[in-house]
Amino acid sequence: MVLFIVSVGLSVTMGLMGFVNLAHGGFAMLGGYAIVLSMKHWGLPFPAALAFGFFAVAAVSVVLERLLYAPLYRATELDQVLLTIGLVFTMIATLTLSVGPETQTVELPEWLRGQTDLGFIEYRTYSLALIVAGTALMIALWFGFERTRIGARIRAAVDNRRMAQSMGVDVGRLFTLTFALGSGLAAIGGGLGAEILGLDPQYPFRYLAYFLIVVAVGGLGRISGVFFAAILIGVLDFVLKIYFPKGGTLFIYALTLILLLARPHGLFGKKGTS
């Protein structure tokens, strides 16, 4: 589920905007730090810290998008890859300098700790909360993109930038907003996931492959696709690690490889989206 929340943001930037954004994990990390630190130093409650993380990272990403990403929308993938890798290095270094290289831990509030009895099974409350949050987020996003005007505009702008512009859509601003949303989502994912994935300055690179795979499997720009792909990969990873402790990851990579070859647009992607 954490995988979904982080990845869905990436799907938004990479899929909808067609930008190879390897720095996405970096935004997730920034978000995670913002959330953890604001709780630790300012004593913000967890939900408030999440909101803070979302807006802080969204704000940072607006600046970065205008300054760095916007000039490269038309550039080659190579340039985009370089830019975003550079950005990750910069983020890692900045955090190491300002906060320190050690792993940060999240202090979960009382009501999210412990176990919850669901009647048929006992489960960790936090995991349940994540599942609920993820599902809610997915429904909200799906609704936002498929059913509202802004969503329609974003999809139009991605489809045909010129046309959308001539119809009076401010594509630049729209993309900035979309990007901020994507990065903000990453931040929430980073914060929520800190408990499970851990949080230290090496975070962006460690999970990069995972995020990318989820997006690639789910199909670019497909919210529901990413949702199911994240679940699929999360469950597969979990099951395989139990029954086949060493080969699990190998299997996932192999599966992704085959899948991408058969359907370059992802499992749930429609043709011609990328």
Partner: peptide, 13 residues
């Protein structure tokens, strides 16, 4: 790392 990151950004841009 910081220098490398900034250099990459500059090069890409």
């Amino acid at each position: 790392q910081l220098g490398l990151g900034i250099t990459l950004i500059v090069v890409a841009l």
